[in-house]
């Protein structure tokens, strides 16, 4: 993913000694005979920062000591962090998140294109879908899917026929509940992205003889990605957390795994903390992934890509010794 030609701009002071312009030809702007001296100034002292840092450290220390003295079996937390039920739950959480997001993104993009279609049937269907699925809570939707057998005891698709209870497993109910709800949100995100692309792009593509569908796929959607990706990353991270609602329909994700264990050993807080740590870990990993994905889709919109956090750290390390670069 990294560009070999990319370089970290060397963070040196911009006013440096120049060669004094000796031997220059032609009408060069008059340069002073003495080489300019680097600015030596005492930087502004930020007392507020020091004070706030101390306050934050004190509060942090108080929190740590409170938790250390609380009646938490920290060793239990440690023991269960890599318990196989917890690991299986984390994998299920990840799995349902990925699948539900996939369903949401694909269906959402289709809905967005339908919503913007000139065909009134298409746009009304998309509007109705979004209205229903955005207007009801996910938890209710999950329960509705899970209990579908109460109103349709038998699933009969003509070519396929089965008991609804056998078909609508907790997994399928979770996938439909989370994914279909997500599609409604993704549709609005995609629509905003598609509409952000300059109309001249469509015109240029049409003028070249491209059809509307091809223009959408090759020209508009790739450019819309830049606008669609950041909120989609947020949606993904939200989904990691929202998937915990599937606990209510017995889908074996992280929270259900934790509560299953704590119902046996009664270490309720300990296992909730285990789940918390896992959720934080997952969301952190995907936040980093989101950053690089956004960076990738900026390609072409800026002259050079922004530096990665690691490049920034390296640059900051070098600049520690030199005076501040301005800014805050």
């Amino acid at each position: 993913m990294s560009d070999p030609e990319e370089k970290v701009p060397a963070p040196t002071v911009s006013i440096t000694k120049d060669s004094g312009g000796a031997g220059g030809t032609g009408p060069v702007a008059k340069s002073s005979p003495v080489p300019p001296e680097a600015v030596k100034a005492i930087p502004v002292r930020h007392y507020g920062r020091w004070i706030s840092a101390v306050v934050v450290l004190v509060v942090l220390a108080m929190l740590v000591s409170a938790f250390a003295n609380a009646q938490i079996g920290w060793s239990t937390v440690g023991d269960y962090l890599d318990h196989e039920t917890i690991i299986a739950g984390a994998i299920n959480t990840l799995w349902i998140t990925l699948l539900a997001m996939l369903l949401g993104v694909v269906l959402g993009t289709i809905l967005a294109v339908m919503r913007l279609s000139k065909n009134p049937v298409m746009s009304s269907v998309a509007w109705g879908y979004i209205w229903v699925f955005r207007g009801t809570p996910v938890l209710v939707q999950l329960l509705l899917w899970y209990n579908l057998a109460l109103i349709f005891p038998v699933l009969d698709l003509g070519f396929y026929r089965d008991e609804m209870n056998d078909v609508m497993t907790p997994f399928l109910a979770a996938l439909l509940g989370l994914g279909l709800n997500e599609a409604a949100y993704m549709a609005e995100i995609s629509r905003a992205g598609i509409q952000s692309v300059d109309e001249g792009q469509t015109e240029a593509a049409h003028a070249l003889g491209m059809t509307r569908a091809r223009t959408m796929r090759r020209i508009v959607l790739p450019q819309a990605m830049r606008v669609i990706i950041p909120p989609t990353g947020n949606e993904f991270i939200n989904m990691l957390k929202t998937s915990s609602l599937a606990y209510a329909i017995q889908y074996g994700e992280l929270l259900l795994s934790a509560t299953k264990i704590s119902s046996r050993n009664l270490a309720v807080m300990e296992l909730l903390l285990v789940a918390t740590i896992w959720y934080l870990l997952l969301t952190s990993v995907f936040s980093v992934g989101q950053y690089y994905l956004e960076r990738h889709f900026q390609r072409g919109s800026t002259r050079s890509l922004p530096s990665t956090p690691w490049q920034k750290v390296k640059a900051n390390l070098f600049s520690l010794r030199s005076p501040s670069q301005g800014g805050v």
Binding site: D198, G200, Q201, E203, A204, A205, H206, A207, L208, G209, M210, T211, R212, I219, P222, Q223, R299, G300, S301
Partner: peptide
Amino acid sequence: EREVAAQRRDIGMVFQRFNLFPH
């Protein structure tokens, strides 16, 4: 739509604001 697109293939157009595909 397809027939209109086919007609446009033979007609090149250059715009005031270039409209190159930035990606």
